[in-house]
Simulated scan of single mutants.
Amino acid sequence: MTRPTPAPKPSAPTGTSAAHVPLRWVGPLRISGNVAVTETEVPLATYESPLWPSVNRGAQISRTVDAGIRTTLVDERMTRSVLVEADTAETAYAAARAVHDRLDELRAITRATSRFAELLAVRHEITGPLLFLRFEFSTGDASGHNMATLAADALLGHLLAQVPGIRYGSISANYCTDKKATAINGILGRGKNVTAEILIPEAVVAARLHTTAARIARLNVHKNLVGTLLAGGIRSANAHYANMLLAFYLATGQDAANIVEGSQGITLAEDRDGDLYFSCTLPNLIVGTVGNGKGLDFVQENLTALGCREDRPVGDNARRLAVLAAATVLCGELSLLAAQTNPGELMKAHTRLERLTGARDAR
């Protein structure tokens, strides 16, 4: 009996992601820095409808400052850790020294696995007879998960054949660390390390944010720093980086689970004679403009509109995407903290905006 050919699935409707998550463009944001100088809208896919106007308020403020949001890309690397086992800690330590003595040949092996992978460094940790090796790679315009794993697999096989006294433990050893909140990622970084900062004049703080620099700086210390410390946060002190990152990741075809380490970041706020200095530092921004998830039509359209599909040197499109993500985080973080300095403002905004969205969606 011939099975009927299933009907093709309809494409995602305009204005939604492939998973039918509502998507809107907000902005434009004005940014400058060592990667990009631009004004551009950004796409955010989210069910949390107040996020769009919140980020948009931060974007409006960015346009009141000549330099806008200054973004600085500090570092970039993708990591993969492997585990090898020995019989004693002494043997594991000897193996670790042998690995570091072979860096040139390990770099050659890495290049053979991909046109874009480069081995930047190797770090190790020894616990009893267990040797953890953390390989750090540059991966071009890809976020680099698969590229790093492919290279690590080749490196591991080579080391098991060449270094005496060790045997296979695992291709992934949780010392990377992938999609988990850890101290090592906050300290050493995984993905793009970006700081976004802005200096907002006192008059703009009063008119657009309805607060003062002193009140925002005070709240940031009490809420983001002390509150997070009391909660046991790991290398993190912010209000809601995950909200902006998830919406940005879904709209641009990123691996959404990377918001776990991506949302580890630190917000700083200072009162500078009435003006507000505000910054967001994100050491674990894992984004790419090629690779898995980037072939979807709506993702390609969004990346093109963001200027992240241009003919640039390898890696520059992904760097641009990373600084746009960091600037978007700053916009939403700034708006939320400002709202929380005023009693009742946050809940009133949520109630009003969610009711408006709900009524519109029900029609």
Results as ranks from 00 to 15, higher is better:
S32I: 08
G33F: 01
I61F: 08
P50K: 08
P43N: 05
T113C: 10
A86F: 00
A94N: 09
G33A: 06
G58N: 02
L130I: 08
V35S: 00
P129Q: 02
D104L: 09
A12W: 05
G15P: 15
L51E: 02
P28N: 12
V35Q: 01
P129A: 01
A67G: 08
S62D: 03
I109K: 05
L44E: 01
S54T: 10
Y47F: 08
A36P: 06
T79R: 03
I61M: 05
E39S: 15
G58M: 08
D75P: 02
V26N: 00
N34Q: 04
V82Y: 03
E118G: 04
A36H: 10
D66Q: 05
L120M: 08
S81W: 06
P53S: 10
A98E: 14
W52H: 03
R123D: 14
T88M: 13
E90K: 09
L44K: 02
N34W: 07
L131P: 02
I69L: 05
V42M: 08
A45H: 06
E125R: 14
A117R: 02
E85N: 14
H20W: 07
T127E: 12
A12S: 14
R97L: 10
D104A: 14
L120C: 03
V122S: 07
A59M: 00
I31S: 05
G15W: 07
T79C: 06
E105Q: 12
L44W: 03
D101P: 06
V37E: 15
D101H: 15
A67Y: 04
E39L: 12
V35L: 02
H124S: 13
E76T: 12
S81V: 03
V37A: 09
